[in-house]
C-alpha cells in the first residue's frame, strides 16, 4: 500500500467477498485507520488517495447492503426502538457476554475481551466526533457535551481511551494503539468499521446518532456486570475503574443523548428517523454477531482470537 507496487483489488472482487468476512473487514479497517492515526511508514497522503477511496466505496456498499438486508426493518418509530433498548433482561439470555463474564468469566476470557474491545476503546468516542459539524442547535450542543465527558472533561488522565489503556495494563496486556488488530476476529473489526462508516458519511448522520444512543443506553448495565466480573477475577483497581466510570457517566449520557441529541436531530430533520432506527438495529446486530462468536469459543474452552494472547 505504501509505494504503489501492490495491486488493489478490483471492484468485482470486492463485491464477491463475504460482507462479514476477514478480507472485507480488514480492508475497511485498514482504509479507515488512515483517517484516525494511520500506520507507521505509510504515506499520510494516502488518506485521500482516489484509488483507495474507490476501493473503500465498493467495500462500504457491500457492508452496508448486507447490514440493511440482515437487520434493517425500515421502521421509523425511534421512541419504540429506544424503549426496547432500555428493557433489561432479567438474568442471562444466553447471548450476553457481560452476563457470562459476570457469572463465570475466567481471567483469560476477560483478557481476550479487553484485547478485542481495545480496537474501539483506544479510539473511544473518536468516530462519533465526526457527526458534530452535521448537527445543529440542541443536538450539537448536547453531542459535544457528552463527547467532552468522553474525552476526560479537559483532563488527559480521565480520557476514556486512557482509562481503557490503564485497564489493559492492569490485565497484563499491551496497551499500545493497534496492538491487537491482527488478533481480533472479523466480528470485532465490523463493530468499529460500522462506527467509521456512519461517522465519515454525512448522509449516515442519523445512523451515527442511533448507534451512539445504543452504546450509551446499553452501557451502564453491561458495565456494571463487567466491573463485577473484574472484581471477581481479582483484577486491579484501574481495570475496575473503567467500567465503574461507565456506569455513572453513561447513565447521564443516556438521558442527554435520548432527549437532546436524538430529540434535537429529529426536530431539525424528522425524515432521519428511519436512519436513527437503522443505526440502533445495526449496532444490535453486529454486537450480537461478536457476542455469539466470543461465547461459542469460550464455551468450548478455546480462544476467540485469531492468535491467542501470551500469558501475562
Amino acid at each position: 500500500m505504501g509505494c504503489g507496487r501492490t495491486r488493489l483489488p478490483d471492484a468485482g472482487a470486492v463485491r464477491r467477498s463475504d460482507p462479514y468476512g476477514d478480507d472485507l473487514q480488514l480492508l475497511l479497517y485498514v482504509l479507515y485507520e488512515l483517517h484516525y492515526r494511520g500506520f507507521a511508514g505509510v504515506d499520510e497522503r494516502l488518506e485521500w488517495d482516489p484509488a483507495l477511496l474507490g476501493v473503500r466505496a465498493a467495500a462500504e456498499d457491500v457492508f452496508l447492503d448486507a447490514l440493511r438486508r440482515d437487520c434493517g426493518s425500515g421502521g421509523k418509530d425511534v421512541a419504540e426502538a429506544v424503549d426496547a433498548l432500555q428493557l433489561e433482561p432479567v438474568g442471562d439470555d444466553g447471548h450476553s457476554v457481560s452476563h457470562h463474564l459476570q457469572r463465570e468469566g475466567e481471567l483469560w476470557q476477560l483478557r481476550e475481551y479487553a484485547a478485542v474491545r481495545s480496537l474501539y476503546h483506544l479510539k473511544e468516542a473518536d468516530p462519533h466526533l465526526w457527526v458534530v459539524p452535521r448537527l445543529r442547535g440542541r443536538a450539537k450542543a448536547a453531542m459535544v457535551a457528552v463527547e467532552f465527558d468522553e474525552f476526560g472533561a479537559g483532563r488527559a488522565e480521565n480520557v476514556h481511551a486512557q482509562l481503557f489503556a490503564d485497564l489493559m495494563t492492569d490485565l497484563g496486556l499491551d496497551a499500545r494503539y493497534g496492538r491487537y488488530l491482527d488478533a481480533a476476529p472479523a466480528q470485532a473489526l465490523a463493530v468499529v468499521n460500522m462506527m467509521s462508516l456512519f461517522g465519515l458519511h454525512r448522509r449516515l448522520r442519523g445512523a451515527l446518532v442511533g448507534h451512539f444512543a445504543t452504546v450509551e443506553i446499553t452501557s451502564p448495565p453491561g458495565s456494571r456486570r463487567l466491573a463485577r466480573a473484574l472484581r471477581r477475577a481479582g483484577a486491579g483497581p484501574a481495570a475496575r475503574r473503567f467500567y465503574d466510570e461507565h456506569v455513572e457517566a453513561d447513565a447521564v449520557h443516556e438521558q442527554v443523548v435520548r432527549h437532546e441529541v436524538i430529540g434535537g436531530l429529529l426536530e431539525d430533520e424528522p425524515e432521519l428517523a428511519v436512519d436513527v432506527v437503522l443505526g440502533i438495529e445495526v449496532t444490535g446486530h453486529l454486537e450480537d454477531l461478536l457476542g455469539d462468536h466470543l461465547l461459542a469459543a469460550w464455551r468450548e474452552d478455546r480462544s476467540a482470537l485469531r492468535t491467542p494472547l501470551a500469558q501475562p
Partner: peptide, 22 residues
C-alpha cells in the same frame, strides 16, 4: 447501587424467555 447517582436500575425488566432461563 451507586446512590445518590443513577445507575439505570430504575429500568423496567423483561422476563427471560423459557429458553433463556439461567
Amino acid at each position: 447501587r451507586t446512590y445518590p447517582w443513577c445507575d439505570t436500575s430504575h429500568r423496567r425488566r423483561k422476563p427471560a424467555g423459557p429458553s433463556e432461563s439461567r
